[in-house]
Deep mutational scan, measured.
Amino acid sequence: MSGNGNAAATAEENSPKMRVIRVGTRKSQLARIQTDSVVATLKASYPGLQFEIIAMSTTGDKILDTALSKIGEKSLFTKELEHALEKNEVDLVVHSLKDLPTVLPPGFTIGAICKRENPHDAVVFHPKFVGKTLETLPEKSVVGTSSLRRAAQLQRKFPHLEFRSIRGNLNTRLRKLDEQQEFSAIILATAGLQRMGWHNRVGQILHPEECMYAVGQGALGVEVRAKDQDILDLVGVLHDPETLLRCIAERAFLRHLEGGCSVPVAVHTAMKDGQLYLTGGVWSLDGSDSIQETMQATIHVPAQHEDGPEDDPQLVGITARNIPRGPQLAAQNLGISLANLLLSKGAKNILDVARQLNDAH
């Protein structure tokens, strides 16, 4: 009898209710805020589980004197976190989706994509230029951005401005803007500013005609071990179906173009009346040469937790077992079709030249 009692006690200790789920994140304040929001949602869904947040620095956090596009290494903000995932030191990792490459290392998958916040870019102005827009900034004003995508589009749109690289986390960039006289304004992701509670610093939100956004911008991705079915089931509740389908289309477009950090590629997606609209573009580094096109596809946005595919093969690095396969494939095909259209119009040449120029500098 006593033996059975011990077995029952052991089973209770090993039951999922007692389990601590370890969540990996970057150390920056924004990353911690984003991770806290994901953990809060998981806690609400699984009140019996405990969650421990483990923060670590990544290569991208450490190399702050070089433009991201020049470092010449993929997975700048993800490699150390993936290493911890691989060694079973954490069970899942919360990322900004735009930091996750469209091809993940073997053994990993994006197990959830959370509801997207505003994906557009924002302009934050130096205190002396508050009330201005990019259009009304004085001639030769210097605007800071760490992104080739932003610089290429904005140089084309605002030729009277000069664009220079600015690195560091959000706090560091804002301090550089406010305390030094080098920059009249800087460009940042609206979602990051909003998550930090800095709505009052948003001086201008850039519309798609001015600057399309990065693939996955404004959404959070939760990376897990691809074979860890328990954790895949656990994080599945975080999937937002519309965000998922938009981001599958965007990531398929980028992957098929073979774009990345070192080339200016941008997108804009919208879901309306059962249609998914995808606009994508590529630019030369100075913005003088560009190709942009829009395509659409009829896609039914499923309700969360309709029964999805059981075999769960990944699409552009994403596993969404609780979302039907048909809409996911339709979104992926839309991204591939748009990429093929741009490639047929000469996108590869623009991107190759951009890559060579970026590598040469």
Rank of each mutant, 00 (worst) to 15 (best):
R22F: 10
G24P: 00
R26C: 00
R26P: 00
K27Y: 08
S28L: 01
Q29M: 13
L30I: 02
A31G: 08
A31P: 00
A31S: 10
I33Q: 08
I33A: 14
I33N: 11
Q34T: 05
D36W: 07
S37D: 05
S37L: 12
V38T: 12
A40W: 10
L42I: 10
L42V: 07
L42K: 02
K43Y: 08
A44M: 04
A44S: 12
S45L: 08
Y46D: 10
P47I: 04
P47L: 06
L49M: 12
Q50L: 12
F51P: 12
I53M: 09
I54A: 07
I54N: 11
M56Q: 13
M56E: 12
T58E: 11
D61L: 10
D61V: 01
K62A: 11
I63P: 12
I63A: 13
L64I: 11
D65V: 10
T66A: 13
T66D: 04
T66L: 09
A67M: 00
A67N: 04
L68E: 07
K70V: 13
G72C: 06
G72R: 08
G72H: 09
E73S: 11
E73Q: 10
S75N: 15
S75R: 12
L76C: 14
T78S: 08
T78C: 13
K79R: 11
K79Q: 11
L81W: 09
L81Y: 04
L81R: 02
L81E: 03
H83L: 14
H83M: 12
E89M: 08
E89R: 13
D91V: 04
D91H: 04
L92E: 02
S96G: 10
S96W: 00
L97I: 08
K98G: 01
D99L: 03
L100K: 01
L100Y: 12
P101E: 08
L104R: 07
P105H: 12
G107P: 03
G107H: 09
F108A: 00
G111K: 04
A112S: 09
C114K: 07
K115F: 10
K115A: 07
K115D: 13
R116G: 06
E117H: 11
P119K: 04
V124N: 03
F125H: 04
F125D: 02
F125C: 02
H126M: 07
H126A: 10
K128Y: 09
K128I: 12
K132T: 10
T133D: 13
L137V: 11
L137T: 04
P138V: 09
S141R: 09
V142S: 10
V143D: 04
V143M: 09
T145Q: 04
T145R: 05
S147T: 06
S147P: 00
S147A: 00
R149S: 02
R150I: 02
A151H: 11
A152H: 14
Q153M: 07
L154R: 05
Q155V: 10
Q155Y: 09
F158R: 09
F158E: 03
L161N: 04
L161H: 11
E162M: 10
E162R: 11
F163H: 10
F163L: 14
R164C: 10
R164H: 13
S165G: 13
G168I: 01
N169T: 09
N171P: 08
T172N: 12
R175H: 05
E179S: 11
Q180C: 15
Q180D: 07
Q180Y: 12
Q181C: 04
Q181K: 12
A185V: 07
I186L: 09
I186G: 05
I186K: 04
L188H: 12
A189L: 02
A191I: 00
G192D: 03
G192V: 07
L193M: 14
L193P: 07
M196C: 14
G197D: 04
N200G: 09
R201D: 12
R201H: 01
V202E: 10
V202H: 02
G203H: 00
Q204E: 09
H207T: 13
H207I: 08
E209G: 07
Y213C: 06
A214Q: 01
A214Y: 02
V215A: 09
V215D: 03
V215R: 04
G216C: 15
G216K: 00
L220V: 11
V222E: 01
V222K: 02
R225D: 06
D228P: 15
Q229H: 12
I231Q: 00
L232I: 14
D233K: 10
D233T: 08
D233L: 03
D233M: 07
D233V: 07
L234K: 12
V235F: 01
G236A: 14
V237L: 12
H239W: 00
D240P: 04
E242G: 02
E242L: 11
T243C: 01
L244R: 03
L245Q: 09
I248S: 07
I248R: 04
E250T: 03
E250C: 02
R251S: 07
A252P: 01
F253D: 02
G259R: 06
G260S: 00
G260V: 15
C261R: 02
S262A: 15
P264M: 00
V265S: 01
A266I: 04
V267P: 03
M271T: 06
M271H: 15
K272T: 12
Q275N: 03
L276E: 03
Y277W: 03
T279A: 12
T279I: 13
V282L: 07
L285R: 10
D286S: 08
D286E: 13
G287Q: 00
G287N: 03
D289S: 11
Q292G: 08
E293A: 11
M295P: 03
Q296N: 12
H300K: 14
A303L: 15
A303H: 04
Q304S: 13
D307I: 03
P309H: 10
E310M: 15
E310L: 10
E310G: 12
D311V: 12
D312W: 06
V316R: 13
G317Y: 07
I318L: 05
I318N: 05
T319V: 02
A320D: 09
A320L: 07
R321K: 15
R321V: 03
N322P: 08
I323E: 06
R325L: 15
G326E: 13
Q328E: 13
A331C: 13
Q332H: 15
Q332P: 06
N333Y: 05
L334N: 15
G335A: 04
G335P: 01
I336Y: 00
S337F: 00
L338H: 00
A339S: 07
N340E: 01
N340S: 08
N340D: 12
L341R: 08
L343F: 10
S344P: 14
K345F: 15
G346V: 07
N349K: 13
L351I: 08
D352E: 06
D352H: 15
A354N: 02
Q356L: 09
D359C: 14
D359Y: 14
A360K: 01
A360G: 14
